[in-house]
Amino acid sequence: MESTERQQRILGETDAAAWVESGMTIAVGSPPPMALVRQLIRRGVSDLTVIDSGLSLDLLIAGGCVRKVVSYYAGGGFGVAVAPSFRRAVEQGEIEVWECEEGILATGLQAAAQALPFLPWRGGVGTSLPQVNPDLKLMTDPIGGETLIAVPPVKPDVTLLHAATADPYGNVQHIGGPGWLDLFLHRAADRTIVQVERIIANEDTRANPWATTIPSVDAVVRAPYGAHPYYSRGFYVQDQAHLQAYVSAANASARENRPDDLVHYLATYCRQPATHADYLERVGIKRLLSLYEY
């Protein structure tokens, strides 16, 4: 489309989530962009390969979206050592795991970003990782003859992130720095969508360009409280009671064959609310305002 004006990159969460199609590889940042994650479940996307850890991964599995998991950690919390839906689905053989480790995953994402066929990494030499994940190849370093692991590119079609602010042209600024693997997930991906607490003016970006953590992402979604029930630094802490309720429901479904609470959770918080604002109404303003940081 010809235009004489610079194109804004603000999208509604439903339009943005529609970028993700069944069968794609997606990556989910930290804190998880839960407004977008819930939209994927609502849309009934399936057969995804998901690069994620923790309970956002678990929710996507519970919501039926996942065929394959690329994860270095799927912990549960609240007395549950392993994310319940992840554990059940893997034990039942319903989903496949691309077994990796934090350093190995970062290396694979870096290889994708740099358009390399592989990058070497030492962590994992001597372990079972190359056996349980045949894509990880033991190699002999051609210079010094050392044994290393060749990690192939890990390349998301779409990366979904949450951040504090962005301007209409996709310049993202974090409060407290980007999470865990966010910059890797962005650099490796074909396209990145970032949901933010606030959209700021381009003048504000230019007033402090050093603060821009990710320039020029493909889409910006305004989602205040969008990481709920997780935290958003500078805005709110994570909602322990809500997360605990989810873990209990997922655990009852996975371990005790009592799926009612999980079915109810998915309906109430993921499938019925048409928009993020509808979700927030269900959580309730008193609960949201109780999650202040200090």
């Binding site: 392993v82 893997v90 034990e91 994992g124 079972s128």
Partner: peptide
């Protein structure tokens, strides 16, 4: 140390663990 899981068949683990986190890299160095 094993954080992957328990069972002879990796495709059908009797117990699926949380995953290695960053332990392979950290314990290497």
């Amino acid at each position: 140390s094993n954080l992957i899981g328990v069972g002879p068949d990796y495709r059908r683990l009797r117990f699926r663990g949380p995953g290695p986190v960053g332990t392979a890299t950290l314990t290497t160095h």
